[in-house]
């Protein structure tokens, strides 16, 4: 039982990372109808940004403050991935609006380029990011069940990010504009909203969220150029299951995938568990093709 509880806990903490990456994907897909295959690479960029910050701290700064590097690494990951996202939107994505199939191919190409770029700069082998000392250890619930601080920290970080996203999307002027453009691009422009600017900022923001997810992943293991590819499938699954463009859907989808995955893996084995969760998602989507959270309204133009 304790082993199972720990597995569930681990599953939720990993899937909370997916939630963060998936939210970025859901927002950009909801806004621009672009399927961004390079989204996983923004996770990778975020992870390497954390790696670079760690190296700067260990080489140039006194050892006593090394443990605080992670607080710099989080915003650095966000910014690094966000800047890459902004450049990608300006150079590639902006030519692909309304062409979903082309966007898959083009962004997949971009993802290969970014992977090779990482390989050229950091080398092909995986690198390790040393977790700060204060994150080592675990919270002892009772003998046999210990919750690692790292994973608790990841969950806390994701909760803070989610709250920030909620306020940005639903309580700010900027979020109102994003939602208006998502729902009716032409009308939003007719009200004086610069939709091109909204697209670029939102894409950069979504990419930045993936960057934070990458930063969180460095706490769980070593990182390499193909880090993003390993996670992108699960991220897409969370988006599809939750319902595109829905904050609550993404959170629920992340929880279901995380706990379902670990439960099934615990009951069977890793490969079969993956197969089963995919099958369940496919069956579920036959029943509700638009995902968990769909929005109903009186408007006809949907």
């Amino acid at each position: 039982m304790d082993t199972y509880l720990l597995q569930i806990f681990n599953g939720i903490s990993v899937s909370s990372i997916f939630m963060l990456a998936a939210l970025g994907l859901a927002i950009t897909f909801g806004l621009m109808k672009i399927i961004n295959m390079a989204h996983g690479e923004f996770i990778m960029i975020g992870a390497y940004a954390a790696y670079v910050i760690q190296n700067i701290f260990s080489q140039y700064l006194p050892a006593s403050i090394f443990d605080f590097y992670f607080f710099i690494a989080i915003p650095a990951s966000f910014l690094a991935a966000g800047i890459f996202g902004w450049v990608l939107e300006r150079l590639v994505i902006c030519h692909l609006y309304g062409r979903a199939l082309d966007s898959i191919l083009a962004t997949w190409g971009v993802s290969l380029i970014l992977q090779q770029l990482a390989r050229s700069i950091f080398g092909a082998p995986n690198v390790d990011v040393k977790s700060p000392d204060w994150l080592n250890g675990a919270l002892l619930i009772h003998p046999g069940l210990q919750l690692p601080y790292k994973r608790l920290f990841i969950m806390l970080m994701v909760i803070i990010c989610m709250t920030a996203i909620y306020y940005l999307m639903y309580r700010s002027n900027y979020g109102r504009k994003i939602r208006a453009v998502m729902q009716n691009r032409a009308m939003a422009a007719s009200l004086g909203i610069n939709t091109r600017k909204i697209d670029a900022y939102t894409f950069a923001f979504g990419s930045g969220l993936a960057g934070i997810a990458g930063c969180a992943l460095t706490l769980l293991g070593s990182i390499g150029p193909t880090l993003g590819t390993n996670y992108i499938v699960d991220t897409f699954m969370v988006v599809v299951l939750g319902g595109v463009g829905s904050l609550w859907g993404t959170i629920a989808g992340g929880f279901l995938i995380g706990t379902g995955n670990t439960t099934l893996e615990f009951l069977t084995d890793a490969t079969l568990g993956k197969v089963l969760i995919f099958t369940l998602v496919i069956i579920f989507l036959q029943w509700r093709p638009k995902g968990l959270f769909t929005i109903n309204s009186r408007s006809l133009d949907e």
């Binding site: 729902q183 007719s190 009200l191 004086g192 909203i193 309204s297 949907e302």
Partner: peptide, 20 residues
């Protein structure tokens, strides 16, 4: 066809009018 933004409130629809 009015093109009201369907999933946001009436108040937010009005506030979007101030975007100019």
């Amino acid at each position: 066809g009015r093109d009201i933004f369907p999933h946001i409130s009436v108040k937010e629809n009005l506030q979007l009018g101030l975007e100019v």
